[in-house]
């Protein structure tokens, strides 16, 4: 008996993975960037299926809204859009490496019995459902209590990245 959520899950996974495959297989780099945006949208749908609404919104704003646009701008500023996505000399090696890693990961994931660690008793289930229903409140609370040091550190990293990006691309005036 297939639930409707399962059908949506398989469709989303199929769309995400096939557009991710098109990113690395298509010759036209502009189309690759559009398929990358499609992959990000598929990841947004997966986050919604996992009940992580805050992360879905963040992913939609930052990845689909900002990073895709910046990548498309970079493609537009550099020439050779039509032939801009060729393979390197390591084509065979890369495909073999990817297939090997993929097989290894899938075998190790399927062999392990996940039911031993994912069975929640009713008390834990209540806590998980409660936390995900009030996720915005608890994410805000974690950011200013438990994880305040990584929060400040990541804001410094963003500041340094902005300054570094500006100083890398600005015109040198002697």
């Amino acid at each position: 008996m297939m639930q409707i959520a399962d059908i949506i899950f398989y469709l989303t996974g199929l769309i995400t993975l096939s557009s991710a495959l098109m990113v690395i297989l298509t010759k036209d780099i502009f189309r690759a960037a559009l398929f990358l945006a499609a992959t990000f949208l598929g990841v947004v749908a997966l986050f919604i299926l996992l009940f992580a609404e805050f992360l879905a919104a963040v992913q939609l704003i930052i990845y689909v809204g900002a990073i895709s646009v910046v990548i498309i701008f970079a493609i537009m500023f550099t020439k050779n859009v039509k032939i801009g996505n060729p393979f390197s000399n390591f084509r065979i090696t890369g495909f073999l490496l990817g297939l090997f890693m993929c097989g290894l990961l899938i075998i190790s994931i399927t062999v392990f019995d996940w039911d031993t660690i994912t069975t929640l008793d009713t008390k834990e289930m209540e806590i998980v459902v409660y936390a995900y229903q009030n996720s915005i409140y608890y994410i805000g609370k974690i950011l200013v209590t438990n994880l305040v040091v990584p929060f400040i550190a990541s804001s410094f990293i963003l500041l340094a990245a902005v300054i570094g990006a500006i100083s890398l691309v600005k015109e040198r005036t002697e």
Binding site: A33, I71, S88, I106
Partner: peptide
């Protein structure tokens, strides 16, 4: 499994692409 396949697609892309923007993607 979806996450593992997506990771391996990205890994393959880093190795087989010769355009720096494609590697970043």
């Amino acid at each position: 499994i979806i996450s593992a396949i997506l990771f391996c697609i990205g890994l393959t892309g880093v190795v087989i692409k010769s355009n720096i923007i494609a590697i970043l993607m």
